[in-house]
Amino acid sequence: MERVPVLKIGDILLVSIQVDMSDQTAVTLQEDLAERIVATGCHGVIIDITALDIVDSFVGRMLSTIASISRVLDAETVVVGMRPAVAITLVELGLSLNGIRTALNVERGMELIAAARADEWVLTDGDEDAETTATT
């Protein structure tokens, strides 16, 4: 069975799905990722699906589950690179991918994670900073 590689780049885990995954491969990826988040202490996960020509309900559910698991493990998940045809199909299928953050490409995904982490920083970082953001 094929395995999807999980790369660590700085504080982020990058998963670039390049193959037409069987359901078993998807489940394995889900498990691998949970382990890697804990092992590396990363706070961000980017799943790049640029190469996927379809996302069906099984893969959609896997993405939602990964997002939920990583949230429990204090990591932010962003799904990036969804193709237009895939997005149109998902809408028709009725799959809304609730709770998943998305971005157009890896770069934007990284910005999104950085912004989310920074927001948390501000909130937990004493009153002074929190006040300055509130006034903007």
Partner: peptide, 12 residues
């Protein structure tokens, strides 16, 4: 509406 939802799925 579908276009808007699809764009959101793509991150826009």
């Amino acid at each position: 509406l579908k276009t808007v939802v699809a764009a959101r799925l793509m991150g826009a």
